[in-house]
Design a protein around this nucleic acid. Structure first.
Lengths: 345, 345
DNA sequence: TTGTAAGCGTTATCAT
DNA sequence: ATGATAACGCTTACAA
């Protein structure tokens, strides 16, 4: 036993040392590790104890190089700050892990280098899922064309890639109809950015259809662009409400809506008596805010899980036509859109 | 140009094909790609256009094998469901990405196989950060001993690893003192599991110290074990409140607290008039719930960022003694712990 | 400035 | 049942 004093970054134990210690060839070591061919019981014994002795762990890069596989998959999203993406990632990770696949995450934030980063990610995984408008379609189309299994979520479909999203237009219609028909509101504004987000644009489209059918104003002046966060929602609502408050405010997500409620109360507007407010997502805060936030619940976790399952099928060899799934959502009525007397019993 | 009809999983372009097309050796291609040595301008030209032509991307496993580096780091956490871990991961990913390091995530959930999964993860990264009690100390100690840079968060320190957590005991004392001294509450219970969570045990320790100093009951019957989620908080609170309601309820986190508020209201107890409730974390819902939840804010994002920076320093060769950081937290007084008349002006 | 060739640590195909 | 050995695709001395 040599005295050793490695400063750091200890050399890894290799399959050769295991083979030496067990008195066999590296091929045999590989065989017992992979269980890929039969090995005599006592040889197996010796190998196994050598492995345990040396605490041998195969080098992943070497294995990947030889196998031509990474045993990993990636997921790309814009940001992890809101509850939304975290839930999707969680759903994804959960089933990916069950498939024995490591998960690499990449949050693009909106960095210039997003495209490069995605390409780099692609070189470390067997397949990947991309959320929202994180990178240009070109990059994704290239990747898909190169044969990388790809599933996109909450964005326009990409040629050669599976895709899934949650239902937007119909639920938005249902929501707007509730506001217009049940509550009788005649002036409705939309907070969100239909230009930069697919989800926002779908939701606005649904609302707009109802407004048009009811011959209510639906021009550009009733949509106030705004990012998907609370602070931006508060600011945008503040501007709008000081100018010309509508009777109801449909927000592209819950965070915007909660920001809007804050803004409304700050200038003395009562919700829902003076101003009705609705959100989207049904995050925890929507349930606990007072008044409870009327919103649309979407199965975010399930969206991630769906992506993971689809990817797994592709990786298992499924070469059928790309699938496009739309997961159902559900309108959740609470008090922020107005009183519902029938529930008072 | 041969007609090609690959069914799927297209063969990757290799450095050899690039070299061929550019009429140089693979060494030269590598050189221009890495910028590792000077290359004649026109050779560089030819190589670069060949790379572009063929859309060459180096094989990551091959590169890692040759370099002995992964250019990746991992982060392990119990779960991504609450807002807590998502924030930490986000803070981590953000700075890791700046360092050009890919991020692998692993959520252990509480799976049996956690230890194996962590070991597997270790074989794909240059360093990793581990949150909470996700795996046994033994596994982590082994990893650290093998020379893998390791930083642990929100858990007991591990020999050879950096560690950080957010301050618990002092803020818990401050919180309890506010309840006892300022509001005058004499019976206080704790909802959370000091046995299975470091954070919970630190918080309870702080509270207990204050109770003892005030000669108030602090035995096992005032701590109600409960997981870190809303539903479990609701159930635990329901049991407790039906039996013998204390005057104040200190909860190990906001989700438990919000569950407790629900339970209290369900059996006709008003918060804070009949029962004061406090949380921990200051999640979005804490701000929007009515009454606003008194809680302790901790810098979760910063915790992740700290870990990423520390890891980067280690990977850059820093071999100094392990560092142990405690990030400060902040008491946030809202209405759920009782009225604060001085703020009514 | 560029090429040759020896690793890097596996897997898997042949032989034996 | 086991052992040699050729890939796998890159990086990097060492030569030229």
């Amino acid at each position: 036993m040599k005295a050793l004093s490695r400063s750091s970054a200890a050399r890894e134990v290799t399959i050769y040392e295991v083979a030496d210690q067990a008195g066999v060839s590296i091929a045999t070591v590989s065989r017992v590790l992979r269980g890929t061919a039969r090995v005599a019981p006592d040889t197996r014994q010796r190998v196994e104890s050598a492995v345990a002795d040396l605490q041998f762990t195969p080098s992943r890069p070497a294995r990947s190089l030889a196998e031509g596989q990474h045993a990993a998959a990636g997921i790309v999203f814009p940001d992890l700050s809101g509850p939304y993406y975290a839930e999707v990632v969680l759903g994804y990770e959960e089933v990916a892990a069950e498939h024995g696949r490591s998960v690499l995450i990449l949050s693009t934030h909106g960095r210039e280098a997003a495209a490069e980063m995605v390409v780099d990610l692609a070189s470390r995984v067997d397949g990947m899922v991309v959320l929202g408008r994180t990178v240009g379609d070109g990059v994704l189309a290239d990747l898909a064309a190169k044969g990388l299994p790809l599933v996109v979520l909450a964005r326009d479909a990409v040629p050669g890639a599976d895709s899934a999203s949650t239902e937007n237009e119909h639920s938005a219609e249902a929501l707007a109809r509730h506001l217009v028909a049940d509550h009788g509101y005649r002036s409705i504004a939309f907070l969100g950015d239909p230009v930069s987000s697919n989800d926002a644009s779908g939701r606005w489209a649904g609302v707009r259809r109802v407004l048009d059918a009811a011959r209510l104003p639906s021009g550009d002046d009733v949509v106030v662009p705004c990012a998907f966060d609370e602070e931006d929602g508060r600011r945008a609502a503040d501007r709008l409400l000081r100018r010309q408050p509508p009777r109801a405010l449909v927000c592209a997500n819950d965070e915007i809506a909660l920001g809007a409620v804050t803004a409304a109360e700050a200038i003395g507007l009562r919700v829902p008596d003076d101003l009705a407010v609705t959100g989207w997502d049904d995050v925890m805060a929507a349930r606990h805010s007072r008044p409870g936030l009327t919103t649309v619940r979407q199965p975010m976790r399930e969206l991630g899980a769906w992506a993971a399952r689809r990817l797994q099928e592709r990786l298992a060899g499924d070469a059928s036509e790309p699938r496009h799934e739309v997961l159902p959502t559900q309108l959740v009525q609470r008090a922020s859109c107005g009183h519902h007397p029938e529930e008072d019993r």
